[in-house]
Write a protein that binds this DNA or RNA. Sequence first.
DNA 1: ACTCAGCGTAAGGCATGACTTACGGTAAGC
DNA 2: GCTTACCGTAAGTCATGCCTTACGCTGAGT
Lengths: 104, 104
Amino acid sequence: MPYAESFAALADPTRRQVFEMLAAKPMPVGALAECLPVSRPAVSQHLKVLTDAGLVAAQPEGARRIYSVRREGLAELRAWIDRYWDDVLAGFHQDVMNQTGEDH
Amino acid sequence: MPYAESFAALADPTRRQVFEMLAAKPMPVGALAECLPVSRPAVSQHLKVLTDAGLVAAQPEGARRIYSVRREGLAELRAWIDRYWDDVLAGFHQDVMNQTGEDH
DNA sequence: ACTCAGCGTAAGGCATGACTTACGGTAAGC
DNA sequence: GCTTACCGTAAGTCATGCCTTACGCTGAGT
């Protein structure tokens, strides 16, 4: 269940901001840190959490590491939501049945 | 940005379990607590977080309070994911363009 | 009116987590 | 080869969060 780590990763505002910046454009660590109110090591730690969750990935380019978003990570979250989305719709439908007719 | 609270709410495993149980079937607090390894007040606190995030809602029924899932809460999360889903696809598309031709 | 079931809230303890500074390690440039 | 840029990790501090027990409130039944 990798979606568990994904939710935990995106629960932090700074980490969401990192993710959003990478979604807009792949970037090295330094570029992220310049646009954020935290230190560069803090960004590195956040990137580790996001990487472990499968939401981002690093691609070494010389001495730098270009981080970018992994579509599969978002797909996991979408899958989780869609599952319970269906459950809720089914439950709602059942409630309507119970309220209207109590038939069958 | 209510999705912020939603991510924070679903980041906790116990809270996700509560949400999943409510998605399967609306329930009062006591019924949830019986199936969980934590005390009833803990469940109440989790329900408050989920309620503040707009993910669940309570409907008083006599002395009990029947909790159920709010579709709008899940919709918020879906909207956030879909937004960055599109961004990632666009970025990926742009990378392909840069690699193949550098035209525009 | 009294009792009891069902919840929410307050207060406190303990773990988890986010940030900092300091350090080590690798790749590029002179 | 040596410096410099770029990055990850370690250690420590401080805040946040989850859980517990104890308490107070409301609605139903006798």
